[in-house]
Simulated assay, not measured.
Amino acid sequence: MISHLIPPIAQASSDGTAISDSSEASKQFTESIVSFATEYGMNVLGAILILIVGNVLAKFISKKISGLILKKHPEEPSLASIAKQVFYVALMIVVIIVVLGKFGVETASLIAVLGTAGLAIGLALQGTLSNIAAGVMILFLKPFRAGNAIKVGGGDVYLVDEIGLFVTKAHQPDCPKVMIPNSKIWGSIIVNFSDTVASQRRFDITFGISYDDDINKALQILEDLAASDARVLKDPAPFIKVDSLGDSSVNILFRVQTMASDWWPAKLELTKAGKEALEAGGCTIPFPQRDVHMISGSAEAAS
C-alpha cells in the first residue's frame, strides 16, 4: 500500500506548476481576508463607537430638554417625561441611519422605505395612533393634570397619577389602579373636580336616621362634626337641616363648603365620619324596609 502512495506524492512534489498555483491561491485568499478585515473591521469598530457615543449624547440631550421643560412647566412632569422619550428615540434613529451609511447603505432609499413602512404600520395601528393624538391634545390643552380628580363620560371618578402618550395612569378613590386609553378620555365629557372657577367648593351629603331617633340630637352631632373639621369653612356657615321624610328614614342634609383643593378628600372622609358619629351617638342608619300586615281568613270572611 505504501508503494502505491509514493509515486503520486513524488509526482505532485515534482510538479512545480501545481505547487505554485496552490501557493498563489492561498496568498490571494489571505490578502482578501486581511483586506476585508481592514476595511470592514474598521467600519464595524466605527459603527460600534458611533452607537456608543450617539447613545450617550441622545440620553444627555433628551435629559437636558426634559429638564428645561420641567423647569418651565413644573406642574407638568408628564410632558417632560414624554419629551425625553420622544427626543431620545428621534436622536437614536438619526444615529442608526448614520451607522448604516458607514456600510454603504443608501440612506435616501432607507428613509423612503421607513416612510412606506411607517404608513403601513400607521394604517394597522389606527387605534394606537388615535391614543397618541389624544395624548398630545391632553398634554397641550391641559383639561386636567396629574393629581386631579376627574370623571370621564359620566362614569367613575379617577385620581390622575400620570398622563402618557398612549394611556393615562390613574387610580380610583379606593385605590385600584386604572389605565385609561387617551382616546376614550378625549372623546368623552371630562369633569375636573380639582379645577374650579372659584377657590371654594360646596358639597352635600344626605344622612338618614330612623324615625325613632332624636332628630335634634342627630342635628347637633352633625353640627359638631362640621365644627371640628378644619377644612370646613365657617363662612358661609354649614347648612345642616332636615331635608325630607323618606319611606324608611328621616333625611338630613349636610351642606358645607371647603377650599377647592380640599373638596374631594373632605367629602369622602366626612361621609365616613358622619356615619360613625351618628352611630356612636345612638342614632340608627336605616335601610329600605317594608312592613307586611297579615289578615287571617276569619277576619276576611267577617268583613
Rank of each mutant, 00 (worst) to 15 (best):
G67Y: 09
R202Q: 12
K27H: 12
F144A: 13
I52K: 06
S35N: 13
V86L: 06
L219C: 09
A218Y: 15
A25C: 04
K63C: 03
A112S: 08
L139A: 15
A260C: 06
A83K: 00
D213L: 04
P176R: 14
G127V: 02
E162T: 09
S14A: 11
L129H: 04
V89Y: 01
A277K: 10
I295P: 00
I96K: 02
G147L: 10
V160W: 04
L125K: 15
E39I: 14
M179C: 10
E162N: 09
P74Q: 02
T116E: 11
P181S: 11
L51S: 14
W264R: 13
V292C: 01
V136F: 13
R231L: 04
S188A: 11
P8N: 06
I252D: 00
Y88M: 06
M137F: 08
V99H: 09
E162K: 03
I82F: 10
K71Y: 01
T30H: 13
L225V: 07
I33L: 15
K169T: 15
V167N: 14
N216A: 10
S296M: 00
E276T: 07
D21H: 13
K27D: 12
A170Q: 07
S3T: 15
V242Y: 10
Q28I: 08
Y40T: 04
P265Q: 07
A124N: 05
S66N: 03
C175R: 14
W263Y: 13
D195G: 02
V89N: 03
I163A: 15
Y88Q: 05
P238S: 00
A218G: 06
D156S: 14
R231S: 07
A18M: 12
Y211K: 05
G16F: 04
F193Y: 15
P143G: 05
D213T: 05
M137H: 12
A280T: 02
G41D: 12
S298D: 10
V152M: 02
E76W: 04
N43R: 15
L123I: 08
P77M: 01
S81Q: 06
I252H: 03
S298H: 10
G281C: 00
A120N: 04
P288Y: 07
K184L: 09
Q28K: 09
F166G: 15
K63T: 11
A260H: 04
G246M: 03
G104N: 04
D247V: 03
A226P: 05
A146W: 00
V34A: 10
L110Q: 06
N216E: 11
A25E: 11
N251Q: 08
P238H: 00
D291M: 01
G41Y: 13
I65F: 07
I163G: 15
M294I: 00
M42F: 14
L123E: 04
Q28A: 09
A301I: 11
E279P: 00
A218Q: 07
D195Q: 12
M137V: 13
E31K: 05
N192S: 08
L268S: 11
G135N: 05
T30A: 15
A112E: 08
M92I: 13
D224L: 10
V86E: 01
F287H: 13
P143W: 03
S298P: 08
E106G: 00
K217P: 05
S244D: 14
K84I: 13
L233Y: 04
V95S: 01
